[in-house]
Structures are given as structure tokens and as C-alpha cells.
């Protein structure tokens, strides 16, 4: 056991020189792009880190932006909360050009954050991170009863759901009735 650990730790410093990205670094300086979420806070991220997101990678590979153009045109992700985007950017930076480990234990433990993260990651098409997040959700579901799951994740029962639908319809009906009444009033 110890010998293999030593082996990997001694091999670690050698890694940067063999990685193709760093080998190419002296000639082509790394390009950066800019993203912001709902809070408009702009994050500067390297193209290497952004490779994790199939969505962003697809967008930037056809643009050919200069540094100035990239800075002037940050990608807006209005549907992603600022702190969630921060998490995504941090994860991409940490895992830049590295093979991803089978488990990721640094995911948020709070379910609210986790779900928002899942949605963001799904939208940005970050496959590995989505896998970790889904594993984490599966872990949180394990051993729970349907009632507990409903409570934790605020899922209405079918009966509540139907009642809410009915209520919404009723309200829509009333509004429509109100509008026609108003229209009738106008006509007079």
C-alpha cells in the first residue's frame, strides 16, 4: 500500500511537464472568458476550465474572441444564482485538465443548494459534476419513506397537487369572469 502511495506522490510533480496543455502554454497564452449569473458578478475563467461545460465550450469554440472582445461580452446566465455559479466556476478551476475522481465529497450538503447546483450543472452540461450531484441526491433519498421525501423536498401529495390545480383553475375562471364583467361594464 505505502509503496504505491509513494509512487503516486513522487509522480505528481512530474505531471505538469507531461500534460499537453502546459506543454503548449509557452507558445499560446491561455485564453480567458467571462461569465456572470443573476447577481451580475463577473467571473474570469480559463478556456481550459470551461471545457468541462459542453454548453460553454461549444459557444466559445466558434467565437474566436480576442481578450478584449471576451472581456466586453461576458456570458450572461440569468437563470443561475451568483453563489451557485461561483461553485460551478470553482469546481471547473479545481478540475481543470485533470481526470475527475470517482467521488466528489465537496458538494453542498444543503438540499436547496444541491438542487440549484444540479439545475445549473444540467443546463451548462457539465457531465461529471452532474454525475456527482445525482449520486448525492440518490444518497439523500436512500432509506427515506415517501412521506419524508415529500417533506424534505416540498413535493405536494397527489391530492394536494390536484387541489392546487383546481384552485388555480377556479382563480383563472374568476379572473376571466371578472374580465368579461369589466368588458361588459366598458361596453355600457
Amino acid at each position: 500500500m505505502s509503496s504505491t502511495e509513494q509512487g503516486t506522490s513522487s509522480a505528481a510533480p512530474a505531471e505538469p511537464t507531461t500534460a499537453p496543455e502546459s506543454a503548449a502554454a509557452p507558445e499560446v497564452p491561455e485564453s480567458f472568458y467571462y461569465v456572470h449569473g443573476k447577481d451580475k458578478v463577473v467571473h474570469k475563467v480559463s478556456a481550459g476550465a470551461l471545457q468541462h461545460s459542453a454548453l460553454i465550450h461549444g459557444m466559445i469554440s466558434n467565437l474566436g474572441y480576442t481578450e478584449e472582445q471576451a472581456k466586453a461580452n461576458p456570458f450572461p446566465f440569468e437563470n443561475i444564482d451568483g453563489d451557485i455559479l461561483q461553485m460551478v466556476v470553482d469546481w471547473c478551476n479545481q478540475h481543470k485538465g485533470k481526470p475527475t475522481p470517482p467521488e466528489d465529497t465537496n458538494l453542498p450538503k444543503q438540499k436547496e443548494k444541491l438542487f440549484d447546483l444540479v439545475l445549473a450543472v444540467n443546463y451548462l452540461e457539465i457531465k461529471e459534476l452532474l454525475t456527482y450531484c445525482c449520486k448525492q441526491v440518490a444518497m439523500m433519498v436512500k432509506g427515506k419513506s415517501p412521506e419524508e421525501i415529500r417533506e424534505i423536498w416540498m413535493i405536494p401529495t397527489d391530492a394536494e397537487d390536484e387541489a392546487a390545480e383546481k384552485e388555480a383553475k377556479k382563480r383563472a375562471g374568476k379572473e376571466a369572469a371578472g374580465e368579461t364583467a369589466a368588458a361588459a361594464g366598458d361596453a355600457k
Binding site: 436547496e112 438542487f115 444540479v118 439545475l119 452532474l130 445525482c134 440518490a138 436512500k142 427515506k144 421525501i149
Partner: peptide, 24 residues
């Protein structure tokens, strides 16, 4: 907060794939 029931299909499919039989 996002609810589990509002997850996109691909995400739900992934979650089910990582769950055990009882959880599903």
C-alpha cells in the same frame, strides 16, 4: 428553492440510475 419534482428528465433518470431498487 428548486423542488425534486421539477428536475429535468435527464437528471431524474440519472438519480434513478444511482439509486437502489428500494429507493426507486
Amino acid at each position: 428553492m428548486s423542488s425534486l419534482s421539477k428536475m429535468p428528465e435527464l437528471v431524474l433518470e440519472n438519480i434513478i440510475g444511482f439509486s437502489d431498487f428500494r429507493s426507486v
